[in-house]
Amino acid sequence: MTAGTAGALTRDSGRSGHPAGPAVRTAGLTRRFGDQIAVDDVDLVVPRGAVYGFLGPNGSGKTTTIRMLLGLLAADSGEIDLLGEPMPASLGSVLPRVGALIEGPAFHLYLSGWDNLRRLDASDRTADPATSRERIGTALARVGLTAAASKRYRQYSLGMKQRLGLAAALLQPRELLVLDEPTNGLDPQGTREVRNLVRELAFDGTTVLVSSHLLAEIEQVATHVGIMAAGRLLRQGPLTEVLADGAAVVRISTPDVTLASGALARSGLTGVVADREAAVVTARLGEHLPEDVLREVVTDGARVRGFAVERPHLEELFVALTGEGFDVLR
């Protein structure tokens, strides 16, 4: 949930003007380049209303998958449903409802930001020319480019280009946004703005599929994640479930290290590690309840300075799944 975290607002996901089913669904999606498999039997499921973080090391097949979703590349085999309709067969009726940023922005160098957006708006057969100016202005304002609207694209900085790409995806209200590395080249404010933008859009009901290498960013906005490596989708699901895969760890700060570790072991926790120097004991929480564990420790007479249950972050999980190796695999 995004703004729903305030506890006051949530979206009804039951009723819908559109056929039910996920916003994106692929089955057995496969694509080869020569004898190399870039995307290998991928079954992607992006539920409606989700912010889906699409993760994976360089060359793992994210952009190739996205290009197939959008009808730019033909799949060798497999099926794609976008917003409940088959792709690429229904491309003409589906894509007007989809905004996309694919592998960085691309515009005409000798046109201004405004004129570039006008060009894209004019090429959209579903865009109402009467509201064109207004929509372009709003899109530019939303990404903070109003002041640079009349500058030639050639003179844009990397982050300004990226922002213009986002503005292009926002020219119309979209049911689905596909953003391939939207924060590439953005300054910290820009990155933060994109995070807020994604939250806002999601709250307005837009499903967002976002690929990124900024795992801390994804962890903050995503409701779901999918992790690719070497063309295969290793894991996907709600963020909390995927993170729960990694075992939670209790971490107790105490001068009475022996007492505490004894209590933990007796309670049935595994992987107990006592660090006398740091005065810290850790153990895998497993199925135990943290409150019960703490009571046992205190009952045994250990004086507790601090108690925490730590879940692994996306980054650790990502590395655990995709390996430590730095070199691209293919």
Partner: peptide, 30 residues
Amino acid sequence: MSTAEVTVLPRPSFAPPRTQRGAFWRLYRS
């Protein structure tokens, strides 16, 4: 916090996109 109620907003409905009249000529002019 304790008195906050959960308000369920209706799921937003997106108008199905329609082809505008003269869209091809707009693209041609562009």
